[in-house]
Design a protein around this nucleic acid. Sequence first.
DNA 1: TTCATTTCTTATCATACATCAATGCGGGAG
DNA 2: CTCCCGCATTGATGTATGATAAGAAATGAA
Lengths: 195, 195
Amino acid sequence: MKRFSVFLEDKLGLTTSQVEDLLLSKQTKTINKGDFLLEQGQICSHSFFVEEGLLRMYALNNDGKEHVVQFSPENWIAGDRGSIYFNEPSNYFIDAIEETTVVFIDQPFLDQLALVSPDFRTKNEFLLHNHIRHQQKRIQLLLGATAEERYLDFIQLYPNLLLRVPQWMIASYLGITPESLSRIRKALADKNFAG
Amino acid sequence: MKRFSVFLEDKLGLTTSQVEDLLLSKQTKTINKGDFLLEQGQICSHSFFVEEGLLRMYALNNDGKEHVVQFSPENWIAGDRGSIYFNEPSNYFIDAIEETTVVFIDQPFLDQLALVSPDFRTKNEFLLHNHIRHQQKRIQLLLGATAEERYLDFIQLYPNLLLRVPQWMIASYLGITPESLSRIRKALADKNFAG
DNA sequence: TTCATTTCTTATCATACATCAATGCGGGAG
DNA sequence: CTCCCGCATTGATGTATGATAAGAAATGAA
């Protein structure tokens, strides 16, 4: 749980000894590529900190097509907040793009964190605001940018994911078909060779 | 500040007397239709609780076109969290669709709330999670739903806004042109008359 | 009221992206 | 190694939505 420890210290303001105590009772779980941590209809009872690997969260639309809501590589937290906090069946699936090791985070654990660390809540709120900010940016791009602009933004934001995520999933994240993404990539390549 | 008082009591868990104390020093501000509370490039230093009226937050894309990120009618809070919490110049505009009365909310006021009310933070986090949930739903619809589906969803979610927001702004919220929305409305009307 | 401005509608044409279909590549299973 | 099968590419064609333009309807100011 190396990454999770660092996360608790750096992002949530815990001391090294606090982290050691807290993690005594915690275990990691490793799942295979393609395995699910959450399926549509289930109530999501945990968040998942990604210690190693890569998760994806997606929904199905009316036609049964997948649409990726977010990717979660190392140091990210995946989970359906709607389901967790409002106790509703989830609309989402979460599965592993690579073999992935996660730490399960439930509400009692978060309560523990709030107890031992005075500024845990402040830091946690900061993370929530950051999440909102990123979602807002994404909405803005979906509303007003072309598929090519969105693809370029994706590359800038997640340069390391480019090589780890199959292209058809990136297309799904961008809201276009794999064929369209292929053409966009070709057009970009042509431009660069010309310029 | 009737609505703001009720909001503090019902949503953030304060007692009536706490609210009375807190609001002694607070004032409302009323702005005219079309006036701005935030413009692109400014650092957003306050959130705005809408006591009466209707605000809209929007961004400009590369072509200079407006895209509505959110509407804020009574009891909603507007503001660019990215700018507030990360102290960056905002990408957004916030202006009034109707004459609007707002309460300014700054960080010291929030700190005060956290001091006097034990479960303020818990309730506030709940509101943040709710916001994230709604944004996620919107992203999902922008990725996988047709413009018509998005319009129907908008009607369900904000039935009261339909009459208060000009159609071209709703189109902007949906990510389409006013002309397209007009056509979608006509198609829906035809369907209803037929069925 | 009257005039001006904004908003909504309608029509025609243009375009980005989707769909359908065929081909080729590349990595994993046996 | 060879045989698949899933993934990426490419082409031909279709469709939803955009762009432009014009007129009708609503709104607001004088």
